[in-house]
Design a protein around this nucleic acid. Structure first.
Lengths: 277, 277
DNA sequence: CCAAAAGTGTTACCACTACACCCATGA
DNA sequence: TCATGGGTGTAGTGGTAACACTTTTGG
């Protein structure tokens, strides 16, 4: 691709790997503690950083997409099958290079539901850690995790993200707990319920679930496609036709928040300005 | 790029490059045509795709950050100095690999103001193209550009992005035109004015500028830091301390838009689901 | 005075917050 | 019956869209 446009270049090829930050909620919901976020780490069996904990990862292969490379790396190191996997950022730079070789990590982040959590066979070299009690980490993986958590907290506004952290089905109370766990704020349950239902992304399964000894709650399921015929396809990174100018066919109006900007956008912009003169 | 034979393919490191999508407004504002977006391309001087147009790009070096590699690649191919540079996405996958080698492109996108536009010495092998009249492009650069444009249109809600496309100083009318050019929608000027001023990101320079033969307009400047002492530092990708949970110290409440999610988040999520089962 | 862009005021609407309230259930 | 979480109603608030309106300039 862009390589070869520049005549002067004759550099040693960089080392490239894929790493994944997997996030999940603590398995239990209940009295004990509000759910914390946990993530699995693997112990390094090679130099450098031998014996230290690191993000699961792997290499690229020519016949896979980056996503499926990430997926496979995850599977082969932890047996987990995330339902949400998104490219987070690509890290590089002088502080990462070893022996004059640029070291590049393409980092994905993944969310797994509580049910899938069991898939992870904890072993000597794979272990869950709570987000706020991480061991010392290899490379700059600590920084990467912090960034992933920050992204999660700034992205939690989108219903689909939170939904991946609970199971396939869930009550609004459970989902509410997830939101509170992630944002760290307390959220009015009544308003939360209305908002989330109004988004049209949830579907009542008809089932009821009794959590404690109280009134049973309705069980919902996430539906990505609300029964809303007139809003166009959402863009798909692999389907360029969908990136065409859309004109908001869903008829919604833009609100202040959309315009004011989320931290996400700012972080990158500011990061640049701090650096590129 | 027929590097590597079949046997070494498995172990051969992937080829990694950096490419940049640079966006700018057409130099003229006036009656003629509403500003369109233009971008510079460079003509390839090597196989493959020899003679075709491609995104400016270059390689990585071990002693630079990815951003500064992008910045430098841009400078050396086009002499442009963008004031906005942000990592867009990293592309890879089987459709990109050549000769069994994974080919990865870390793509940045950049915005340059109309003033800086002159820095680009148009030559045989560097040329501006309007966004909607692109030539046939090398590799999958067309797709990348489409993605960058889509990102731009979905990020234009943030005042800082639009501001990079006009000059250092500008009238509200000019800024308004930029918004309309990018979104393709017509925006009520009166409301636009109020919103943008209310954001606190603009500062009246005191100067007046007469565009046509009409009433002169106030000239504004973008200020990233509103005189607003109690809202914390914005996160900086290179300063992990700032990723800490922030609790919205600026006292604003979240609005529907922030919660409902922008297309940005959806695109990635949907892309994944379309792929990773 | 006219045309055209700059800039202001006014109203109606709608999403959201806060909080009071009712419902269903097991003990 | 009580306690507890599930679930609903409703008044008030604040941001914004729509659009009418005033101001300033050159011709």
């Amino acid at each position: 691709m862009g390589i070869g446009n520049v005549t002067e270049r004759r550099l040693a090829p960089p080392q490239v790997g894929i790493s994944v930050v997997i996030l999940a909620l603590a398995p239990d919901r209940g009295e004990a503690g509000r759910g914390r976020l946990w993530l699995p780490l693997v112990r390094r069996v090679r130099q450098p950083y031998l014996g230290m904990w690191a993000l699961p990862g792997g290499g690229l292969s020519a016949d896979r997409t980056l996503e499926s490379s990430a997926y496979k790396a995850l599977e082969s190191t932890t047996s987990l099958h995330p339902r949400y996997l998104e490219q987070l950022y690509t890290f590089g730079g002088p502080d990462r290079s070893r022996g004059g070789l640029p070291m590049v990590s393409i980092v994905y982040w993944a969310l797994v539901g509580q049910a899938e959590t069991r898939d992870l066979a904890e072993a000597d070299n794979v272990k869950w850690f709570p987000e706020d009690e991480l061991p010392e980490l290899a490379f700059d993986h600590r920084r990467i995790i912090d960034y992933a958590l920050w992204r999660l907290r700034n992205k939690i506004e989108y219903p689909d993200v939170a939904v991946r952290l609970v199971g396939e089905t869930f009550t609004l109370g459970q989902l509410h707990d997830v939101y509170e766990a992630i944002t760290g704020e307390s959220i009015d349950l009544a308003n939360f319920r209305r908002r989330i239902l109004a988004s049209g992304q949830l579907e009542d399964t008809g089932a009821k679930q009794r959590i404690g000894r109280h009134r049973p709650a309705a069980v919902y399921r996430y539906v990505s496609r609300p029964a809303d015929p007139d809003d166009g396809e959402r863009p798909d990174l692999w389907n360029p036709a969908q990136w065409a100018r859309s004109d908001r066919s869903d008829g919604t109006t833009r609100t202040a928040g959309e315009r004011a900007g989320n931290q996400d956008a700012r972080a990158h912009a500011d990061a640049l300005s701090a650096l590129a003169r």
